[in-house]
Amino acid sequence: MQLSEILKKDHVLLDIEADSREAVIDELTKTMEGTGVIADAATYKAAVLKREEEGSTGIGFSVAIPHGKSAGVNEPGLAYARLSQEVDWQSLDGNPVKSVFLIAIPEEQAGNEHLQILSQLSRKLMHEDFREKLNTASNSEELIAALEG
């Protein structure tokens, strides 16, 4: 499985406007609903918000990675948004976020390859040069290429 299999081109939103954490999650959920990754947006969103309640997924460095494991998800999916205006995410370092990765995991999952991909992505996010690439990508192809690199 490749990263591009779960981060589809349609899942990438560059420089969108959103005024709140929930608005960003809504936008990204919509993209995955559109590609059939998410079957039941409401159930999925509830799972994501519940995870946020347990502790913010704003990991600092202006990045947040909200995620939800829910029966409302058909297949593993990943969506990305780069925000034109930073949004407060109650991040670990207190700073607002600019990059948001929304992760969707089905309740019943066979195999764990997508988890490996996500864990690799999470590791990469800890490196500054990698985060820099996210900010400079000018279209979705470039962004996906950067993530896979």
Binding site: T57, I59, H67, L118
Partner: peptide, 17 residues
């Protein structure tokens, strides 16, 4: 971490790094 999808690995990478 509770879901074991992202933070577990970010924390690991942060410590490694």
């Amino acid at each position: 971490c509770p879901t074991g999808i992202a933070h577990t690995f970010m924390a690991a990478e942060a410590l490694d790094k």
